[in-house]
Nucleic acid binder design. Structure first.
Lengths: 218, 218, 218, 218
DNA sequence: TATGAATGAGCGTTCATTCAT
DNA sequence: TATGAATGAACGCTCATTCAT
């Protein structure tokens, strides 16, 4: 290895090998999250995960020390990607807080239904998960929660929103959004878009944005 | 079995025997529902159920042909009792539809948190259940759903409620109520009452009952 | 169950069922001890034990909660029986301490070679065993050790024996006796008897009982 | 491979390469012997060996065709070194056979405890090893055995020693010496020296060297 | 009716071994 | 030479299910 390569390695120690390994890990994680989402943690065996990846069970242990760890990592990865997308969206938005919240909700549901139909139940029933995972999930949820909470706080502060309690509203919002993929799992195209809009409008009511007879903000 | 015994069986005794059997079944069902609710279907073994009943595993098979059947029956029983309580309540109510819906929601949450803290997850993740059970659960939900739907329809019809869509509002309501036992599992007494009231008020917003500055109906 | 039977049960709570279970447990224990002795704890799988018993692996778990527990129990049972036999022998002996020690050693070797060819290595390499078992084995050894130690102490006190140190002598004695089954595993009948006598005589030298030119005590 | 390379290989380079390979093999052997000694053959994985050598598992297969072979070679190397040290010692000794045997025993124990605390169990339980290995170990033991046997034969011939049987005495001696590292594993410094002396004296009794009241030879 | 016993399939995990690079 | 990856058989263990009594 030349001095230059060494320097490069020190700066970014991910060599070709490491990158390949990382890619493989992401593959496994994606597959695992998919399956856990479909059937729940307990109901998925490592055999199942391995089979969908077309490798043998034992191979998974080359990348993860246990099923629990695989589960934790899967949910963590998925949760982070999800939150990052929402954060990215928010960064591009301005305008009335009402509009921004609508976009955030709609985007969240869209991701849930379109991109991570699996992911929902990962968040939904934390009792299913071993202790250690619960912590990870909790942290994930908090980060995720903050995006919505900040907007609602802002809206309430500016008088745009009316709520019984911010916590209550947030909880109901999340409970509903978490179920959305189940509700809409059969829909595609315009039907799905309409369903998402409808659900979004309904959820906006939780912050007092009653759909008036006049034109609603798009 | 002699003719006499048969006759006896046909007359009273069978009734007695049958009643005893039914009672036993109900005991088992209650215990099973309890355990499934506490830990989830997969995490409960028949050994667990048998132990809490102080019988042996094998005995359960005298009453139920499989774990799945036991699970289905447990959820069915629990769901029916639950719905019956709500139906009973509704029968005693009159007054504005707004008030009646509030009472129904509050009662539902109360049952969920206080009486069947278990029951929630039985409803929540139907994918966990084998095909056959899913049907039972679906029917159960529909009957349950109707109570709420009828009230909302009435309110919308009379102009008391405003909704984006009845279906949407119902779904969000149920999603939230289903989670309530998880949210409030740590609360007792007045704290719990307050939490239930708050959640109820929040859910009423889904039908356009924005909490005004004036006194809200109790 | 009649009152009488109940009373009997209270006094000696081992019913027919319990006795049968105990007998089965003893069978399993004997087989397990045999196998562990033959190949060592690690090298024996539960499948092996089950196969020799002509049952399936899972059945063993009806009687023992883990392989470790099975191992511990096996060694404990075997060790106790062994020690009891030696204690029984000692109780019938009198005469010079020299003669009693000879008999004890010879009997110990005889049991090792003839009755528990397996048992030796159970005592020999305690590192093979999980922590918990080590304690059990240690206690077992101490009880066993005492039989020999008391005799040697007596002999040293009365001037019959000469030792560098009682501990040293005991250790060497046990190390040698533990190996005897390996050494003599191929021998039968008179050849075996002769071998045992020879080894016994050699071990007696550890307490200063040098074989003289004259007749040795039988 | 070109003729030139072949030639080169035949001449010096191969020597260098071969020597390097041999050195590597010795490293591996030493590490393996260490680990096998610490935890026992079964409890050590090739992963463990590789890790301590800071190479990958697969690399070991470049030097050894199987774990069994590695085990056999490890024990062989260790046994040879051990015997050579004893042979070396014997070559420097003269004087009474009694003194020479004492030195040999003490040295053997010293090596066992101080230098190869590992080695003991390698010799102790030959049943653990596959057939092929047993042969190697047997040969090793015989060479090793001879050192002691020759001395005892000499002593018996000259009347210095009295034994029931040379074989018996040898066996007991080895059984005890094999266990010494277990017995003394916690000791250091003077305490250890004293323990070795004591054990040596005790073992000398197996050849009739009863510790007298007078000064014993150091 | 109920029990104690047994079964057999499956699970998470380990590990010696193989192999393309 | 050495590595990273993968394999497959085995292991300890769990559990729904069966069955003789």
């Amino acid at each position: 290895m030349s001095a230059r390569e060494t320097a490069a390695a020190d700066a970014a120690p991910v060599g070709r090998v490491q990158r390949k390994r990382d890619r493989r890990i992401q593959e496994i994680l994606a597959t695992a999250a998919e399956l856990f989402g479909e059937r729940g943690y307990d109901a998925v065996s490592l055999e199942d995960v391995a089979e969908r990846l077309d490798v043998t069970k034992g191979s998974l242990y080359y990348y993860f020390p246990s099923k629990d760890q695989l589960g934790t990592s899967a949910i963590e990865t998925l949760g982070n990607r999800w939150t990052e997308r929402l954060e990215g969206l928010l960064a591009t938005l301005d305008g009335p807080v009402h509009d921004r919240l609508r976009r955030l909700i709609a985007e969240h549901i869209g991701i849930a239904v379109r991109d991570y139909p699996a992911g929902l139940r990962l968040f939904l029933v934390p009792q299913d998960w071993p202790e250690q995972q619960r912590e990870v999930i909790k942290a994930l949820r908090q980060r995720h929660d903050r995006l919505f909470r900040d907007l609602i706080d802002e809206g309430v502060g500016s008088g745009s929103f009316t709520v019984t309690s911010v916590d209550s509203a947030l909880r109901c919002m999340h409970a509903s959004m978490s179920q959305s993929a189940v509700w809409f799992s059969g829909l595609r195209g315009e039907r799905l878009d309409a369903a998402i809009t409808e659900l979004t409008d309904t959820l906006m009511m939780l912050v007092g944005a009653v759909p008036g007879p006049g034109p609603r903000p798009a």
